[in-house]
Nucleic acid binder design. Structure first.
Lengths: 201, 201, 201, 201
DNA sequence: GATGAATGAGTGTTCATTCAT
DNA sequence: GATGAATGAACACTCATTCAT
């Protein structure tokens, strides 16, 4: 890993635990193993590290959203028979590549902390945790409705319930304490139970 | 308001917006209108302010929980006919005296920020936002089930859905950006819509 | 003990261990069990405590010197046969009431510390540890010489040797570490050995 | 002189006059002509300055002791006729390079002040002022006894008297007030008188 | 790419002291 | 006699940042 990447990695870990202001350049450099003056070769200033992290996160989720769009649309294009496969694919992809992804998880924590005094972060936080997931679910279930799997009129409340349940679980298990395997499993189990009851039973 | 109370008030406002470490004693004193040395007459050190806030919050929610217990039990004792009154009472009481209460709301934000590097706060955060509300809902709906208003076997999932929906709304509207009247109304409307669809329609 | 005396007692203990400047009014009051503002009822300011201690020490040693004068002169007046009794009396009196006396011992330590930036204390320190003891020994041995116990011409060097030996022992055992019983005994033994060899053998 | 050395130099001067705790980082930096933050580039904290001084003193006296050992042994090896030359050499070396040496003298004063609440310093103080000098004298006089210059049985008391006399003079002239040329001369004269009377006359 | 040396502003905290009660 | 509340100045120490090398 390049020094620049190492700095961003260490900074994210610290920012997401103690908050941006509470972490010092000294702290970061100490952990990375460089002198403070060296950091300024790689970044203009402290704010630049935060901005770079946000930028990286932005392009990361842009990629995710693009990929999700593809998954959502593809089956229809390729004429697959079972449409609920796409639902599962979308959800498991979002869980693995987004909620369980170490970089994204730490970014969400950082945004959770920093949203209260940084409007840019607040907007990104709201989009990423509330708006986008709701939109994605909407797309999936609208497609299922079009395919006749569920009634058109139920779509809104199905999405609201599904989205609220997963959001609550995210805050309860993934944005609370350390992201341990135990918590991930608890999250997964509760998601599965909900899905099983709601869509299978 | 006593100097001590003023300090706690200002400190909470600042801590909940920028995080504990990012707020300086100077910041607090400047806003309160006292010298730094005066603050140290009222508090042992910076940590003591945070501890005092947590202690105040603890006894505050202890009072709330006691009151909720009373409301939940009373109607049955006094032989009131319609038991779902208690449900409404409990919910509206919790919303007004807890979620919409300025002190509690700011404490929740503070805990949201500080939970990541303070285990005591993390435990309190989990209890206050996830465990306690779930328990309260459980008590209410179990009572409704006993009264025959809903089937015994549905209780668990009704509570899970209700709790998850209200929790998501709390994070979306009450622990996101400033707590404006607009956000409070949006929260209230969505809670009402959910309740109406779920329990009335 | 009056509050004023308690303050002086505690202050002396702390000053003699950590030095005047390094001890705070808070430290003293904490140990005495009073509030800082109370101290200012008894003393004008911090310096006033030090001055009072020095004044007390001054009158204390004035009393000692007066008493020593009496002992040195009395035997001759009253026609006692053995004059070396006075030597022993003077020395044992000085040891018990001065070097081993807790108040005097702590004052010597305090003066040892403070002499380097307080000319008044430096003068008192020099007088008390070097000038006065030399004078006292001189008076005693001159009297012994007059009584024919030792040759007149030996007086100067006898005094110089005796004084230097006792001074060295004072620094080595009484003004070094805590004044324990063990150290006192070691001091006493070495004084006795020296006297035995020098004057008896 | 490097910034680090300048800091140590100034710190020693101030510590030895007012005591460690009574000297502020501001005081030192003001005298050195640097900002406080610069000092912390060179030293971890205030204690680190003291520790560095002690370390420097330790290696300084280790060097001295080594050199004294050489002087004490050499003449015998090289078969010099007059052994009392080594006595003079040792004493004058110790006086010039130790007692009169500005660094050592200030360190002794510092240790004299700080011994009362720092056990490490107390031990070093005792070793440097009482134990080591006594040992050195012992080695010298034992050698003189072996060479037949003085009777074996007198060694102990000769050393005790010589050591006590020089120690007293050290406290009286070298560790009392400023170390002026006048005081050095007074010290030198009294040492010379004592030696003359004791060993020549 | 990286560092040694420096800095002005700011950190939490303690200082001796005052004064009305 | 004693205290609660306050203060300005100082404390040791850390901050993000610069710049010549």
């Amino acid at each position: 890993m390049s020094t620049r990447d190492k700095i961003m990695d260490v900074a994210l870990n610290m920012f997401s635990e103690r908050g941006y202001e509470a972490v010092s350049i000294r702290d970061i450099c100490g952990e990375v193993g460089i002198k403070e003056s060296t950091l300024y070769y790689h970044f203009k200033n402290k704010k630049d590290i935060l901005d770079s992290l946000i930028e990286k996160f932005r392009s990361h989720i842009d990629g995710l959203l693009l990929h999700v769009d593809e998954i959502t649309e593809k089956p229809a294009k390729k004429g697959k028979k079972s449409d609920d496969i796409s639902l599962q694919m979308v959800d498991s992809y979002m869980i693995d590549s987004y909620l369980f992804d170490p970089f994204c998880n730490l970014m969400l924590r950082l945004m959770m902390i920093e949203q209260f005094h940084n409007e840019e972060i607040r907007a990104l936080y709201e989009k990423t945790l509330f708006t986008d997931p709701y939109e994605i679910q909407m797309n999936v279930f609208r497609k299922l409705a079009k395919a006749g799997a569920i009634p058109e009129k139920d779509v809104e409340w199905i999405v609201k319930e599904t989205h609220s349940y997963m959001t609550m679980l995210t805050f309860k298990y993934l944005l609370n304490g350390d992201l341990t395997e135990k918590r991930k499993k608890a999250y997964y189990k509760e998601v599965h139970d909900f899905m099983a009851r709601r869509f299978i039973a």
